[in-house]
């Protein structure tokens, strides 16, 4: 890891004054579970590391009339320990539990989970987000792509978004607060994740001098929600495919639905097709299956990852049945 200057501001205001105008100048440190590894591999080489661990404004979970306000520095373990989260947002609980290491859950934060960099091994080995060789040749299409994207991969980005909380928060309609020295802005969780088209762009809507401060999850108000993960092993790994769903029902039919897949595309994949397949219908095994088919109908697998289509379909079907209490 390259040497760096370190600062631990006590307030957001102090923190803004320490950030750089360009990526690569300063990096924000939350739990460090991702950032330290990136720095050890020389993927991130910040000149300054600004620790957020002393900033009180970023801590704690508060309930208010517009929903649950989750500070960006709340750890995954603290999220799981919150009574309201456990009662109303099953999909968040299941997504956070899917980070199967107690150590990562004790250190890693909600903000860090959303901002973690992709796990694409070309990216992690220094070939950039778009995984290109010096001459511009794309490495993923003819390379080791078994864990790469099966949806949203028609452009140069083939990695998958690594966040499991992202899909759950999108399905629940969460909003993120992003702050900088010149004020706050709110971004729908759905708009926060981006698919980069050029090597200099990032995969989330953040500028080098901005800090994600808070995640606001609207009141569940009877929304049935769940996350289902398909994974290779139980311990210490990211899932192969996930689905987070949120449903409203009137009588026995679905009145609105959100179906968001994780780990299958460069961003969490909000499937309007799956939602459309459900609205106005009762939720049962066959409608859940139809929604899963609809979600994956447009899949464009790479040479080694066709298997992920079936896994993603299973994730959608089982998440829907779990949300409806039929799993």
């Amino acid at each position: 890891m390259q040497a760096f200057e370190y600062a631990k501001p006590a307030t957001l205001k102090e923190a803004f004054g320490l950030l750089g105008a360009q990526w690569g100048e300063a990096d924000l440190l939350a739990g460090g579970t991702d950032l330290l590894s990136l720095m050890k591999d020389y993927i991130h080489k910040p000149k300054r590391v600004v620790s957020l661990t002393g900033v009180k404004e970023l801590k704690g979970i508060k309930s208010s009339s517009d929903g649950l306000h989750i500070g960006a520095m709340v750890t995954l373990e603290e999220l799981l320990g919150n009574a309201q989260v456990r009662k109303e947002y099953l999909s968040l609980v299941q997504a956070a539990r899917g980070v199967t290491s107690p150590q990562i859950r004790a250190m890693g934060t909600v903000g860090g989970d959303l901002c973690q960099r992709p796990r694409c091994w070309y990216f992690r080995n220094g070939f950039g987000l778009l995984a290109r060789e010096g001459d511009g040749k794309e490495l993923v299409p003819n390379g080791e792509n078994r864990y790469h994207a099966i949806l949203g991969n028609s452009g140069p980005a083939k990695f998958v978004s690594a966040s499991s909380l992202g899909p759950a928060l999108i399905a629940l309609g969460a909003k993120l607060t992003i702050a900088s020295g010149s004020g706050n802005r709110n971004v729908d969780a759905d708009k926060f994740f981006l698919t980069p088209n050029d090597p200099a762009s990032r995969e989330v809507d953040l500028k080098p001098n901005e800090i994600l401060t808070e995640i606001v999850v609207p009141p569940a108000a009877g929304t049935k929600n769940a996350t289902y993960e398909v994974r290779q092993k139980e311990a210490l790994d990211w899932p192969l495919a996930t689905a987070s769903v949120a449903l409203k029902t009137s009588g026995s039919t679905v009145s609105s639905a959100k179906v968001v897949l994780g780990h299958v595309a460069p961003t969490p994949w909000n499937s309007a097709e799956a939602a459309q397949a459900l609205v106005g219908k009762p939720l049962n095994e066959s409608t859940a299956k139809a929604a899963a088919e609809a979600a994956l109908a447009g899949a464009t697998p790479l040479s080694q990852n066709r298997y992920k289509i079936q896994l993603a379909k299973v994730a959608v079907k089982r998440a829907l049945l779990a949300a409806a209490g039929k799993a």
Binding site: Y6, A7, P9, E14, G17, L18
Partner: peptide, 9 residues
């Protein structure tokens, strides 16, 4: 306005 001390490298 930043009161935080910068340490290192």
């Amino acid at each position: 306005e930043s009161g935080a001390r910068v340490m290192g490298p």
